[in-house]
Simulated assay, not measured.
Amino acid sequence: MKHPLPNVMTEARIWVRSDGKKPLRLDGRNASSTNPRSWVSYAEALDSTVGDGYGVMLGGGLAVYDFDHCFTDSGRLKVDVDRIIREITEPVLYVEVSRSGDGLHVFVRSGARSYRRGGVEFYSRARFVRMTCCPFRGWKGIRADA
């Protein structure tokens, strides 16, 4: 199956199903963002029909910058968001458009602590991210180090 994700993400057992933004196990019970026994492989998550989608659990070096309201009315990336993304020093693995269609998830390799400041949300552990697998190709500065 062809997908836009880097192997470092698809080869890890960090996947779960989801119902909206709620992570689920393959049997429909709640998945835990801190219990790897409730996570599965990418293939298992894709093969399941539980819930309405799938996502990843962060940690072990996988982190995400979560940006909301990234685009202008004409659909272009806002200048301040572009500047922040260009200033990311961690290796960028993958960038996707979020479920809202107006945000971005910038997945990186990092062990830094999670934070929220200056309009930037960064999460690095014990957190679930609902995936769209809709790559953002409008920004050419991606450093794919996967």
Score class of each variant (00 low, 15 high):
P91V: 06
Y54C: 01
L62S: 15
A146N: 12
R137M: 06
V129T: 09
L58M: 03
S48A: 14
G141H: 15
T49P: 03
G51Q: 05
I88E: 13
K2L: 11
V79L: 12
D82K: 15
G28N: 03
E90P: 09
S110D: 04
G55L: 00
S74G: 01
W15C: 10
A45Y: 09
S41G: 10
R29F: 10
V108R: 05
M57I: 12
L5W: 08
D80P: 10
R109W: 02
P91L: 03
K22D: 10
N35F: 03
Y115Q: 02
R37N: 12
W15Q: 04
D68M: 05
R113V: 03
V64E: 04
E96D: 10
D73G: 15
V120I: 15
G28Q: 01
R83N: 10
D66E: 06
R137I: 10
Y65R: 00
L93I: 01
A43R: 13
D68Q: 02
E121N: 08
R25T: 08
K22M: 11
G51R: 07
V97H: 07
R83H: 08
G118N: 13
P23H: 02
W15M: 01
D102S: 14
K2S: 14
L46R: 15
P4K: 07
P135Y: 05
V129W: 09
D102V: 11
H105R: 04
R109G: 05
R86Y: 13
E90T: 11
F107H: 05
V56W: 02
G20M: 08
R29S: 15
R76A: 15
G53L: 07
S74Y: 12
S32H: 08
P135A: 04
D47H: 14
I84E: 13
Y42H: 11
T89M: 06
G59H: 03
W15D: 05
P23Y: 05
M131W: 08
G55S: 11
F128M: 00
R117I: 06
G53I: 10
S98I: 14
R29W: 02
Y123R: 02
T132M: 06
F67A: 00
R137N: 11
G103V: 13
V97Q: 07
G75H: 03
S48K: 08
R25W: 04
K140V: 09
P91T: 09
S114Y: 08
A43Y: 02
I88G: 13
F122W: 09
F122D: 06
F136H: 14
P6D: 01
N30H: 11
G28E: 01
R76V: 13
R76N: 10
G53Y: 12
W39D: 11
V92A: 03
D82I: 05
K21F: 13
D82Y: 05
S48L: 05
V92G: 05
P91W: 07
R116D: 12
R127T: 07
P4T: 07
Y115S: 09
H105L: 06
R109V: 11
V56A: 07
V97I: 13
T10L: 00
V56T: 15
R117P: 11
S110M: 00
V120N: 04
G28P: 05
T132P: 15
G101K: 14
R127I: 03
D68T: 09
A126G: 13
